[in-house]
Each structure stands twice: as C-alpha cells, then as structure tokens.
C-alpha cells in the first residue's frame, strides 16, 4: 500500500507545471524515505531530479518500494482539476496498474477521485557524482526568470560568466546583443532579494535558452534559485520546495564547434 497526502495540492500543481515542458513520461520511485524522480528530456540534454521527502507530507505510507511510470501530460491535467487549497492524496496498491488522485475540498463537502493508468518504463538512471562547483550563485528566482526571458529575444543561447564582481548573462544574435550584470548584494535586508556568489574560480558557460526557459517554470516554487557551475560540466539549477524537498535541473553546456 502506498499513500501520500498533502494538505494543499498547490505544491504538487506547481511541481507538475515545473516539469511538464521537459518531460512526457517519468518514473516516480516511492520508498519509505519519500518520492524521487530522475528523468531526462527527449534530447538527453537536460535532466530533472525531483525529491519529495516523506516527512514533508502530512501523511505518508509506503509498505513496499514502488516504481510508477506516469504520463506527465495526463498527471498535469489531473492536478489542474484540483483547487490549490484542496487536500491531495496519492494512493496505489503494492503492485499497481493505476494510481488514484483524491482531492478533498477544505470544507470536506467535495471529494473527487481520478484514476490514472501507469505505464511501463525503462529506467535510465544517470549517476551524478557529488561535485564541488567553481561558482555557486543564489539569486531571486523571479530575476533569473526575467533575465532568461529577456535575453532569449536576442539569441538561442545565454552565456553565463561568473566572477568575484558578479554574474553576467549575455546573448548575441542577428539583431544585436544584450547583457545583464548582477552584482553581489552588499547586505540585503531581505534574504529573498539577495544575490550571493560563492566563487572558487571564475567560470563562463553557454546554455540553450530553450531549456533555461523551461527551468524557470519552477519559479512559483521558491523565491530563490541556486545556480551551480564549473567549467565544462552541466549547470545545476535548484529550487527548494518548501520544507518538503527540491527540484534540480541539470543542463549540458553548449560546446564550441
């Protein structure tokens, strides 16, 4: 028996919105410690790693480890049927063919159940080693989303250069070029508005806008985003999900021809 309940479906709704552009299908691995998803986009350029800890749920029970292949499009449609304040419960038997989503209104007067067929999927797990990154930047997630959106108008790729002075995003294309520099905030009253740079060595990497613009769909999950970068390795773009877990996106850099 697997059962996981969240008092408000808003978190799960936001998580689905944050992955649906990149993933068509994903395996949800459920164990005593929580729910984990690791899945690459079709082109194998980016990877989504989602972790929801069991202690972050209002109720969590997982008698036996389960791998449930889910269609993300269908799951997104189902989650859109829930109000943000509804309680959401995921339920499955030990060897499931289906998963049930149960939405209950706050006043308990409306109860909706949606059953979704599971799919068989081959697991393609990447082994991602613990990595010390040359630059780790924390910045407001809305600012990052804004910069990705603005610079996407100029080119297909954004170059991120990080040094002690700050972080610089730039894009160049046929119509011109653009760059945005953010300095480390001296001392911000509000933690959410801070730009913090932890730099060992300067880095300069180029990434496809398309993927960055998919990652920023996670912006509603967290006020801050953490970007971890080293030369010639994938970018890690991380959003905390309240007290329950995190979503990390990995993106392979573009390489010089």
């Amino acid at each position: 028996m697997f059962e996981a309940r969240l008092a408000q479906s808003a978190i799960l709704k936001k998580v689905l919105e944050a992955v649906k552009d990149l993933l068509t299908e994903a395996t949800f691995e459920c164990s005593d410690s929580g729910i984990q998803v690791q899945a690459m986009d079709n082109a194998h350029v980016s990877l989504v790693s989602l972790n929801l800890r069991s202690d972050g749920f209002d109720k969590y029970r997982c008698d036996r480890n389960l791998s449930m292949g889910m269609n993300i499009g269908t799951m997104t449609k189902i989650l859109r049927c829930a109000s943000s304040e509804d309680t959401v419960t995921l339920r499955a038997v030990d060897s499931p063919d289906n998963i049930i989503f149960i939405f209950e209104s706050q006043n308990k007067e409306k109860l909706a159940e949606y059953e979704m067929k599971l799919i068989n999927m081959d697991l393609e797990h990447l082994g991602i080693p613990e990595t010390m990154y040359s630059c780790v930047v924390k910045m407001p997630s809305q600012e990052f989303a804004r910069i990705c959106r603005d610079l996407s108008q100029f080119g297909e790729a954004i170059t991120i250069a990080c040094s002690k002075e700050g972080i610089k995003f730039s894009a160049a294309g046929d119509y011109g070029n653009a760059n945005v520099k953010l300095a480390q905030t001296a001392d911000s009253d509000k933690e959410e508005e801070a730009v913090l740079i932890d730099m060992q060595e300067p880095v300069k990497l180029t990434f496809a806008c398309r993927y960055l613009n998919s990652f920023v769909k996670a912006t509603p999950l967290c006020a801050q985003v953490k970007l971890s970068m080293s030369s010639d390795v994938p970018l890690v773009c991380e959003y905390q999900i309240g007290e329950i877990g995190h979503i990390r996106y990995y993106l392979a850099p573009k390489i010089d021809d």
């Binding site: 194998h44 990877l47 797990h125 990447l126 082994g127 080693p129 021809d257």
Partner: peptide, 14 residues
Amino acid sequence: PVNQSRLAGYYGLN
C-alpha cells in the same frame, strides 16, 4: 557556432 552536448557525456548510466 556552438554545438549542444548531452548529459551522457558527463554522467555515466547507473
């Protein structure tokens, strides 16, 4: 011109 690398070039399959 730039080419797009893939994740498998950095991380092995488990």
